[in-house]
């Protein structure tokens, strides 16, 4: 399929993360001192081009959601930069951030918890306009109606409450709220994983349509690699707060280099009758980001680990003979 929103790699990225860190203090003891830090995001550098979808994949606790929250500044990063159009958002205060909030929006996983149950859909969708002082009562009403139509809901939905809608419809409402102010970047945190199978594809199609129409850039966070691959141009695989592999979406599947990526792909149950290929079953759990392993964070679960992996953390480097933009952080060429 021809990807019309294939982006020019030389253009300045719309969003750039430089060595982003989010270390949460773990307080303990009599004096409630930060004795340790939970390194949820530990030195991530990524770029997002205009109109592009960057997929973020990893297991629970890998830091993908925290990273998303740092981008929309629901978390204030403890280190590194979040460059939006050349401006570093990381150190900005609440007031200074307000003009940028319009451009960077978020869609949450659980459309039940992210919509205020006591407000009508009309009130929920009008709120962004009120906060940013856009339009009057009448024009807001028209904007809300236009938003509802755009996400495929009837205009009468404006007078109803969130509980009257199904999960898929609520996710459409969450999406309508996120695009209300014509943002440029949308951080989507597991937007379809709470939905039923037959509804997932409807909502995924809507995401793709809106991107084409509005030229949106997405950071699409999910644990389901097949879903991420479907919507993304490039995919970053995260493990314990770091990016272990970054590649064009098709390459991740076709030419995975990192042993973690390979295990992740082979672990996905495919809806095809009795596939014959062997599954790589990794032993053990993801270690705690409070006390991450030395060297390569993946070494305790890696079937190829050597002494070097225990001692030295590998840096992201171009995959040998790989596609352009394919980088991997592993000492070895597997």
């Amino acid at each position: 399929m021809d990807t019309t929103n294939q982006t020019d790699a030389n253009a300045a990225p719309i969003l750039e993360l430089r060595n982003l860190q989010m270390h949460f203090p773990v307080r303990e003891g009599v004096f409630n001192r930060a004795a340790k830090f939970c390194k949820a995001v530990d030195g991530v550098s990524l770029q997002l081009q205009a109109g592009e979808t960057l997929g973020l994949v990893g297991e629970s606790g890998c830091g993908k959601s925290t990273l998303g929250k740092c981008v929309v500044r629901l978390n204030q990063p403890t280190g590194g930069q979040v460059l939006y159009d050349g401006v570093d958002l990381a150190p900005l205060k609440r007031k200074e951030l307000k003009p940028y909030r319009r451009d960077l929006q978020m869609v949450f996983q659980d459309p039940v918890e992210s919509l205020n149950a006591r407000h009508t859909i009309g009130e929920i969708l009008a709120e962004p306009f009120i906060i940013h002082g856009i339009g009057d009562r009448e024009s807001r009403k028209a904007s809300v109606a236009a938003l509802l139509e755009r996400v495929g809901l009837p205009a009468t939905a404006a007078d109803r409450y969130p509980f009257e809608f199904s999960g898929g419809q609520r996710q459409r409402i969450g999406l309508a709220r996120a695009i209300a102010l014509n943002p440029r970047v949308l951080v989507c945190d597991e937007p379809v994983s709470a939905l039923d199978v037959s509804i997932q594809s409807q909502v995924l199609n809507l995401f793709l349509e809106l991107q084409r129409e509005m030229g949106l850039s997405y950071i699409f966070i999910a644990h389901n690699l097949a879903v991420v691959k479907h919507v993304s141009d490039r995919i970053a695989i995260m493990y314990l707060g770091r990016v272990v592999e970054l590649a064009p979406a098709d390459e991740v599947y076709r030419d995975a280099r990192h042993p973690y990526t390979r295990a992740l792909i082979s672990a996905i149950p495919q809806p095809e009758a009795r596939r014959k290929s062997e599954r790589i079953v990794m032993t053990g759990d993801v270690p705690s980001p409070i006390d991450p392993p030395s060297g390569c964070p993946f070494h305790p679960r890696c079937p190829h680990a050597t002494d070097k992996c225990k001692a030295e953390a590998p840096a992201l480097r171009p995959a040998p003979n790989g596609a352009e933009g394919h980088t991997v952080s592993c000492h070895y060429d597997l």
Binding site: S198, Q200, H230
Partner: peptide, 24 residues
């Protein structure tokens, strides 16, 4: 409809997925 609507690793990227209209 269900089997057709699931994105798989082999589905062409960004192609429109077949859907089952409406809901349960």
């Amino acid at each position: 409809g269900l089997l057709a609507s699931i994105p798989r690793l082999t589905t062409p990227r960004k192609a429109k997925l077949p859907v089952i209209e409406g809901m349960v």
